[in-house]
Amino acid sequence: MAIFEQGDVKIDVDEDGFMEEPDQWNEKVAVALASTEGVDELSEDHWKLINYLREYYAKFGIAPMIRKLCKETGFPLKKVYEMFPSGPAKGACKVAGLAKPTGCV
């Protein structure tokens, strides 16, 4: 367990920088985490994607398949990678406060 600190954001994260306590998530946290994933500003589209990930995670306890994410948000795959250069698993999931995806990613 580690602590991630930026400005007045202070949260518990795992060794890969994913949140340990989902309750600590808020929009400020998302902005701070985004900056570590090469995203300097969160646009309306970013928020749409983040909110979808959070809703899905709250319901099912896992990250959605990329297919579901694209279908439900209406973003093509290319756009997802443009928004989060480190990809949906490491980038978008981290910013949305999800736990680290399992498996070799």
Binding site: I62, K68, L77, T102, G103, C104
Partner: peptide, 30 residues
């Protein structure tokens, strides 16, 4: 966690058949 998924669901990320086939169909459409 990964071993459990591979034992029980048949793949290491717990991808269900429905989602897998749906993804391949989507790629075909694209």
């Amino acid at each position: 966690v990964v071993s459990k998924d591979q034992w029980e669901i048949g793949n290491q990320m717990g991808v269900l058949k429905e989602d897998y086939v749906d993804t391949l169909e989507w790629l075909t459409e694209e």
